[in-house]
Design a protein around this nucleic acid. Structure first.
Lengths: 151, 151
DNA sequence: CTAAGTGCAAAGTATTTGCAATTGG
DNA sequence: CCAATTGCAAATACTTTGCACTTAG
């Protein structure tokens, strides 16, 4: 499938692709989630409203959305597919290794880095996936003040 | 290739953990590879020298090495586990979407970004995983010069 | 109406685990 | 010697696929 337009807002305009109840629901949920859903979590949420929905439809839809540029795949770990709604500006992720919370951030430095590296290696850079990891303030407090339990 | 000091240069010093032929071989191969091996590739290479080696040993060793801080897991895709020997300085990856080649790069901007973001979000940042993607010069030439062949 | 999409079950991959046999220290 | 490790096969976990039925357009 070839769709080289800017991020679509809807499925409607793609010829041959139908708007189904399931797809509408799934896309809604992804967008409402504000990011960071894996297939299974999405499935669980979707079943609340559409109990007959199957996991394979979730996977198929996710793949479709990705092809259409409606969502983006993010690699947090090797364990699941993670997706989130595509948003207009670049943003990246930072994950707390202790509590697992994921926050988004932006940074002009990322832009700079893209140009710099692109120039140096003679790459035309089209995407960037940046993930930082560390410990959020809350977890640091707990650590320093309390008992040490580690993974 | 020199592999002098890393967090942990060898398994030897860890009590209860044994140095086996398999582990030595695997760690050697990972370090020689200079980066970017997935479990299966490592398995294939290792069997050349140790044909009775099993895939599960590869997985178990990889997990052990990661726990010991000897190797690092990198998420290129959801499809495989990728590992590489832990190296003293940060470096990141850029992948060509057309031919798939992966190159490494460094950038002081990454450092800056870590501090900046860490400060802004009040995170203590311990790791960064940066991946850029785009098209290398060779593939760009092929593209622009002629026949439209796509993957 | 009919091509596109769905649910379900079965098939794939990649990775992990149980266990008897082996081996490092 | 004996706990750690291994190889093998079976088990898991996640994702994809085949197919008959349903549905959007």
């Amino acid at each position: 499938m070839d769709v080289n337009k800017s991020p679509e807002t809807s499925i409607r305009e793609v010829p041959g692709v139908r708007v189904t109840t399931q797809r509408r629901l799934l896309l809604d949920l992804i967008r409402q989630a504000g990011g960071h859903l894996d297939a299974d979590e999405l499935y669980r949420r979707a079943r609340g409203r559409e109990p007959r929905l199957s996991l394979s439809t979730v996977y198929r839809s996710l793949r479709l959305f990705k092809e259409l540029g409606l969502v983006e795949e993010v690699h947090y770990s090797r364990e699941h597919l993670h997706f989130e709604a595509k948003s207009p500006k670049d943003h990246y992720h930072i994950i707390c290794l202790s509590c697992g919370q994921v926050e988004e951030f932006e940074s002009r430095l990322a832009q700079e880095m893209k140009s710099e590296v692109g120039e140096k290696l003679d790459f035309q850079i089209t995407g960037a996936d940046l993930q930082l990891s560390g410990y959020c303030s809350r977890c640091r407090l707990e650590r320093s003040s309390g008992s040490g339990s580690e993974e």
